[in-house]
Design a protein around this nucleic acid. Structure first.
Lengths: 175, 175
DNA sequence: ACCTGAACACCGTTCAAGT
DNA sequence: ACCTGAACACCGTTCAAGT
């Protein structure tokens, strides 16, 4: 912003408060992803989860920023209300709707945290596939060896969709 | 450890390396949680996930430490091999087994990150239930209001079990 | 009203000097 | 072999001084 760091303390009491405001801003418009009235609950939930992941991915270290904050602004509360609303409207009890929100959000944060850490350019360290492949080859890990291509894949979208589908099918089994 | 911080640089090149070693140590014995040969794949997977959460919870900021590292030590690779092995033995294809590992691990890290952040004593800030309840009351969030008791509950074990069950039932639907 | 610049305590890291 | 103590660059925060 072309200002010294100290200048920001005129607008935010602590760096933590600034990060919270950034997390709130990141979620701007994410709740609107479920506007489609025609889709059923599972498709709307998936759309909301994808929109959340996209929002976190849209900023550097977005997932890490989001995970470290607890905003109570209109964007996160609006998003949460929308998610819980989709579930309640679909007939899920209030407590399951709330827990589904957490399961979806926690998985999304956990996944995107991993995704952004892997995409870090300077990382190069033990994070990249090469080191994992070497370590697996060096040790005796038959199952990891068999699934190594998938383990070292960089198709994070597919990985995210897999986990998201598990959650949704798990929810479907509860109806 | 009753030594100056600089003394640790005799054993670890960077703080990051130290944290990675701590994450590796944290996972000691976690893979052994699946020793029970009699249990079916879903119960063994659940046991492994619970053991991982317990390991992260056993240390201060355990989830945050774990999330920031990418160890390729015997404990994490052994854990990963065990999880993938449970899935492959149950008949899941190699790629699904690998993705199931990530889904389970990412959810567990995401959940425990949230759990340990909420349990932080000094937090007191917008993280605690009080602030959330106030914010929900102030705004117009009908669905959050309806599920507020569950949203502000501190029964993290139940919350974890809910998400874990969704993942497992989602996997069961794929067999 | 809003920013700079200097200052403070603190943290990650290095390294010569001790034992 | 292993640790201390001092030093360095850097970061979060404060605040008097400028415009």
């Amino acid at each position: 912003m072309d200002v010294q760091a100290g200048a920001l303390y005129r607008y935010f009491a602590t760096k933590q408060d600034l990060l919270t405001a950034m997390a709130e801003r990141m979620m701007d418009g994410v709740a609107d992803a479920a506007e489609a009235r025609e889709a059923d609950w599972s498709e709307r939930l998936a759309t909301l989860a994808r929109a959340m992941r996209a929002a976190l991915l849209s900023r550097r270290d977005g997932a890490r920023v989001f995970a470290g904050t607890h905003s109570t602004g209109a964007n996160i509360l609006g998003f949460a209300d929308t998610v819980v609303g989709v579930m309640r409207t679909a007939g899920f009890p209030d407590d399951d709707a709330a827990r589904a929100l957490y399961a979806m959000a926690n998985f999304t944060v956990g996944h995107t945290l991993e995704e952004q850490a892997a995409l870090q350019p300077g990382s190069g360290g033990p994070a990249d596939p090469g080191h994992l492949a070497d370590a697996v080859a060096a040790g005796t890990y038959p199952h990891l060896k068999a699934s190594l291509p998938t383990l070292t894949s960089t198709d994070f979208t597919r990985l995210f969709e897999f986990g998201l589908d598990l959650l949704i099918e798990g929810l479907r089994a509860r109806r």
